[in-house]
Computed example of a mutant assay.
Amino acid sequence: MIRATEVVAEAGAAEDSVTLDYDGRYRRRIALRSDKGCEFLLDLAQTTDLRDGQGLRLEDGRIIGVRAADEDLMIARAHDPHHLVRTAWHVGNRHLPCAIEADRLVLRWDHVIAEMLEGLGCVVERTRGPFVPEGGAYGMGRTHSHAH
């Protein structure tokens, strides 16, 4: 099986892609099938947060683009900027991945968290789309297994 051992910053004119959800984009080693059926082994030196738009270089030089899959999400809208900041604090206190936009927070759908957000006074809307949350506070990547 051909291997992908390098992540490139941009997929550019990749002829193929692999579409992965948020959890599927945090990988080191796994057998994958591209959107056009190419089977390959992702074989990176360390676990990597693959970002939408990056590419995976195969041993033969071809690039497979990384695409963020549509997922069940929720949008939380606050009354004003101060309310949004307070809500973001509560989300962060629960160590939840979250995309922070100027007027809303985007999280993966969870009925318990939706109820919490509504209890905090937010309007919560269920939707679907690619989930691309903020990266870790100490550089690129996710914040799993960090020390307090």
Rank of each mutant, 00 (worst) to 15 (best):
A76F: 00
V7Y: 05
F131V: 13
C38N: 10
L42N: 00
E115L: 10
V91K: 00
V132Q: 15
G139D: 05
L73P: 06
Y138P: 04
A69D: 09
C122G: 01
H148E: 11
E134I: 13
L120T: 04
L44I: 13
L96F: 07
G141D: 09
P81A: 05
V123N: 05
R51H: 11
I2V: 15
R142Y: 08
R51S: 08
R28D: 06
R67V: 07
T127V: 11
A114P: 00
E101M: 12
G121R: 09
C38E: 13
H144P: 10
D72H: 11
V18H: 03
E10S: 12
T127N: 04
R128M: 14
R126Q: 10
R33K: 15
R28W: 04
L58H: 14
T143W: 10
V112T: 12
R126M: 09
C122E: 00
T5Q: 12
L117Y: 01
G24V: 07
H148T: 13
C98Y: 01
G37K: 05
G129L: 12
G129F: 08
A69N: 06
L32C: 04
E39I: 08
A88Q: 05
D70F: 03
E115H: 09
R67P: 00
L107M: 07
N93L: 15
R27S: 10
S17L: 02
A69M: 13
S34I: 06
R128A: 12
S145I: 07
A13N: 10
R57Y: 10
G53L: 02
P97S: 15
V85I: 12
L41D: 03
V85P: 03
P97D: 12
T143D: 12
V124L: 09
G12M: 09
R126A: 15
G92D: 03
A13I: 05
E115F: 03
D49R: 13
T143S: 14
V91Y: 03
A78F: 00
I63P: 04
H148P: 01
G65Y: 00
G141H: 08
D80I: 11
D80K: 03
R108P: 06
L42M: 15
S34Q: 08
D72V: 08
I30T: 12
M74E: 04
G129Q: 07
G24Q: 06
T47R: 13
R28N: 09
R77N: 07
H148R: 11
L44P: 01
V7I: 14
L105R: 00
I100N: 01
H83S: 15
R86E: 14
T143A: 11
A69R: 13
S17K: 02
E59I: 09
H95F: 13
T47L: 06
V106K: 03
F131R: 04
L96I: 14
L84I: 01
L41A: 05
R62T: 10
L73N: 06
I113Y: 02
L20S: 06
I100D: 01
A45V: 11
L84E: 00
V132W: 04
G119S: 07
H111T: 15
C98R: 01
R28H: 09
R28T: 08
H95G: 12
I75V: 15
P97V: 13
A102R: 07
R25P: 00
D21C: 06
L42G: 00
R62C: 07
Q46C: 06
E118F: 01
F40I: 14
E134K: 13
L84G: 02
A13M: 06
M116K: 08
V91Q: 02
L105K: 00
